[in-house]
Design a protein around this nucleic acid. Structure first.
Length: 362
RNA sequence: UGUCUGAUGGUGUAAUGGUAGCACAACAGAUUUUGGUUCUGUUUGUCCAGGUUCGAAUCCUGGUCAGACAA
């Protein structure tokens, strides 16, 4: 590693958060080098209009301009192939398997930290940094990831896959700040455009916010391979036709195109028979789930029967639960009902504000 | 072929003479670094032709269509 202990590689997206993160690091006396990823090419123009978040060409230009403005070096890293091989492929395959992926979790682990760490090595940077609202600290020989101070903007959920090696070198300059303050500071520094820019949102590589169209583009002949199938009730009665199981996700209500007099939700996806089971909201209830691909952060291991709080989606309150270990997977039994537990999504364990670990729901 | 019943927005229904309502669906916006959820809002309807009435989804006549029963 470099002899320069104050050199940091910061991921700039062109948005307000990462820009301010870079600014903070610079003010704190770090030697800062910015990097912006090129992950995906947009073909449609709609994304430009929407000023989409982290990866558009326009944002790359903005990131570069910002770097110049605050006087840091900057480069663009072309990760298109890597991104396609990891994030996009997994995204498509998961849907084809009847599961619902979370590409952001994958992208953070594989693309952002995965690739940035090696670039940091090349450049002699001992730290890497992003504009995430999360915190990391060293304690008991572990590097512990915890929620951002601004609970409404906390993004730790998306970072549960980060390894100890990743966290050891990570700085989150915004972890102790509130989004409102960041916006205010940006405005005060004359960064009006940034302050007014829309939040990055939706899947960054999907234009028009329609993952179904994206799947069609990525999987030629998808509709002829899978095609229409039956909506069925909990009792097995045929209720209508659907467009093919990859277009649905557990808990989904909108877009079913079927009027049954009361709200119906996707309760189960049966890939073998291409059947989608519909039920009431209460039919989505579960009190246990199984996870795999476990990554532990706060503790090196988890004891059978450990108590924790678990989150099964980004915007949901943590629920008290007990973890039962079982070889490579865990069984999580919650003390309150969960709704719409969705295979492919992340279950993240919290202890207070700290992330204990997480896994992918089976 | 006869008799009876029914026909309301995309779907299912309410309103028995007095501004056509509800649920679901659809669409749009809000929320949101995943999908989904949630919230707010919007669009769309009285089978057709006559008649009675100040006024008809509602009553009358004829037609069309559907279901049931009869043969």
């Amino acid at each position: 590693m470099s002899t320069n202990k104050r050199k940091v590689l910061v991921c700039l997206s062109g948005g307000i958060d990462s820009s301010l993160a870079a600014l903070f690091l610079k003010k704190q006396g770090y030697e800062v080098h910015g990097v912006t990823f090129r992950t995906w090419d947009y073909v449609t123009e709609s994304c430009w209009e929407k000023q989409k978040g982290c990866c558009s060409i326009e944002s790359i230009v903005e990131a570069k301009q910002f770097a110049e403005k605050i006087g840091i070096t900057h480069q663009v890293l072309d990760l298109r192939e890597h991104f396609k091989k990891t994030v996009i492929n997994e995204f498509v395959n998961e849907y084809l398997a009847g599961r619902t992926p979370n590409p952001c979790v994958r992208c953070n682990a594989e693309t952002k930290w995965g690739e940035v760490m090696s670039l940091a090595d090349e450049l002699g940077c001992n730290y890497v940094s992003t504009g995430h609202y999360a915190q990391v600290r060293g304690e008991n020989d572990r590097f512990i990831l915890s929620q951002g101070m601004d609970e409404t903007k906390d993004q730790s959920y998306f970072l549960w896959m980060l390894t100890q090696e990743n966290l050891a070198r990570t700085i989150f300059p915004l972890g102790k700040w509130k989004k409102a303050d960041i916006k205010k500071m940006a405005a005060e520094r004359g960064l009006v455009k940034l302050a007014e820019k829309r939040e990055s949102q939706e899947i960054c590589f999907i234009p028009k916010n329609d993952y179904r169209d994206f799947l069609k583009e990525q999987v030629p002949g998808l509709d002829s391979k899978i095609g229409e199938g039956n909506f069925i009730s909990m009792e097995g009665k045929v209720l209508g036709q659907h467009k093919g199981y990859p277009y649905y996700t557990i808990g989904q209500r909108k877009g079913l195109g079927i009027a049954l007099g009361e709200p119906r939700f996707v309760v189960d996806i049966r890939t073998r028979t291409n059947e989608i089971v519909l039920g009431s909201y209460n039919d989505l209830e579960k009190k246990s789930l199984k996870i795999k691909n476990i990554n532990l952060i706060k503790y090196p291991e988890i004891k059978d029967g450990m108590q924790t709080d678990v989150k099964i989606r980004f915007r949901s309150k943590p629920v008290k639960a007990t973890i039962f270990t079982e070889n490579e997977s865990y069984i999580i039994v919650t003390h309150q009902p969960l709704y719409a537990v969705t295979p492919g999504q992340s279950a993240v364990f919290y202890e207070g504000h700290d992330i204990v670990g997480g896994g992918i729901i089976v």
